[in-house]
Amino acid sequence: MYKFLQHVINGLSAGTIYALVALGYTMVYGVLKLINFAHGDVMMVGVYVGYAVAFLLGRETATTVPGALLVFAVAMSACAALGFLIERFAYRPLREKPRLTSLITAIGISFALSYGFQLDWAVQDWTILPGAAARRFPQIIEPKEWLVLGDSDVIIWNWQVISFGVAVGLMTLLQLLVFKTKFGKAMRAVSHDHRVAGLLGIPVDRVIAGTFMLGSALAAGAGILYAVKDKSVQPLMGMFVGLKAFVAAVIGGIGNLPGAVVGALLLGLCEEFVVGYTASSWRDAVAFGFLIAVLLVRPAGLFGKFQPEKV
């Protein structure tokens, strides 16, 4: 029983990270109808920025609440800027081109980032590019046991609770942003038809850039919580998580924010149970099998809706 409970906690904890990454994925897709394959790698860049900030602050300062918040703030701003650049110079010129073009560009950016960050480049004592090896991520959230059951049979850590809270909180905030604010209305209008949105005075380029920056900042936040969980940072971390988060977003119905969170938690649990009760080699096969099963029953994902296309 304890074992089962611990598996549930492990699964939710993994799912939480997928959820945080999937939120940004699904939001960018919702507005741009672009599967931003570079999302996970933008996340990775954010983690490295966070790493650098925590390193500069030093162990003492980085573990304080303001220190940790500063790590998040700088990483998220840096990724927002990166997101802006990617959108401005890679995606915007291709907006009127067939969608496949942007998709392939996205994959290209993904590779450029994940392999670019494996290069090793230092100017005197300053590391500019980090090199391929994994590094230990500083403990910006001091781990504390939040709940212990039995004789340490089940342990829930404070950072697991914080991550889960952040994921649910962000989902709610984003949902409010998209459905209750003027910017959100503009996002949805641009999502449907950016030409018509322009006719209404909506600055389409700015809305798209804004969405991208927001998505990238979210990725950075998610990445830092991920690094807190796994305590390490390495250039390929974004690819794997990005792929899983993408699957989660599709399971939940891509473009749908609560769907992304539910899909991610389900995926996390599903993977955990597969590894816990069968064998680890089955993990990805079952995860993708789950995706296919969901899509067969609900082609638009769990929460996705068919959009009647009236002319």
Binding site: R188, A189, H192
Partner: peptide
């Protein structure tokens, strides 16, 4: 915008 309500469409105007 078919997904947006009538009111939201007008607001966007």
């Amino acid at each position: 915008f078919p997904n947006l309500t009538v009111q939201e469409n007008l607001d966007l105007g």
